[in-house]
Design a protein around this nucleic acid. Structure first.
Lengths: 140, 140
DNA sequence: CGATTATCATTAGCATGCTATCGAATTGAG
DNA sequence: CTCAATTCGATAGCATGCTAATGATAATCG
């Protein structure tokens, strides 16, 4: 009877720390990566749109965007049609870290799961997907 | 090729939110639970001892202990032999929430993994254990 | 058209983690 | 025994998330 929740908390903490360290070499913090990943897919989104895609609160994106602006990863630009909107655009630097950050993440994933067989890795992904779906459906 | 890291981040966030909500009914926040779990096992430990057992930084425990003291879960007492030490002792309330919090956690774990077979749950626990071991051994 | 309502980003303030630093107390070297 | 080194908890300050409140702008209803 393993404490799944406890194992999960531990693993999540270690993975987050390792991820942060791996990406920090490229000037990207772990909390900034998810925002970058959305902007890499589609540049010029608003904080609200990003928050909706990520399932986070808008202020989280606003605050992260401020730190990313200070880090030179994005710039804020006013929307030309709607003065309420702010659009986040990648800087050249924000675009240039895409490949190295993706590679660093992939390397970390391989390293963390080095003692798992490919089948076990697939099972893990399937289990995580099921848990996510379950918690989304029944948030109680 | 699923993004294991991304799945992990998502699942960890949802599980953490659900855990916090489940325990908040008993006046315990998710960050306080790990400290409580150690004190339930052995009362009267110092912040440093708790941090060592949990693998966290000492200031994390100190700050959490302050909030737990305000919540009436623990009290600080000076060590009789070493004036540098502070010992954290459970209050009657801190002891009384043990069973309901444990049950709430167990219920949440069952709910989150409701769509997994017992075998899949075991595989998940095994995979998490392997990942934790791997990240502990090779923190790079 | 004008006023209410809705929709944005932002700010303020909290919880949870961290590292770096501080001050107090103990220990250990000489 | 004394003084430097070590070991504590505590504090300051940062990153990352959250909710609630603010203020500006758009949209809608009458």
């Amino acid at each position: 009877m393993p404490d799944l929740l406890g194992l999960f908390t531990q693993a999540a903490k270690l993975l987050r720390e390792a991820t942060d360290e791996a990406m920090s070499r490229y000037g990207v913090r772990v909390g900034q990566h998810i925002v970058l990943s959305v902007l890499w897919d589609q540049d010029g989104l608003t904080p609200g749109e990003i928050a909706r895609r990520l399932g986070t609160a808008t202020p989280t994106i606003v605050n992260t965007a401020t730190r990313m602006e200070e880090a030179g990863l994005v710039v804020r630009k006013p929307d030309s049609a709607d003065a309420r909107l702010v659009r986040l655009h990648l800087t050249p630097h924000g675009r240039s870290v895409r490949v190295p950050v993706r590679d660093a993440r992939a390397a970390l994933e391989r390293s963390a799961t080095a003692t798992l067989t490919p089948a076990e890795r697939d099972q893990l992904a399937a289990a995580l997907t099921k848990i996510i779906a379950q918690l989304r459906d029944e948030p109680a």
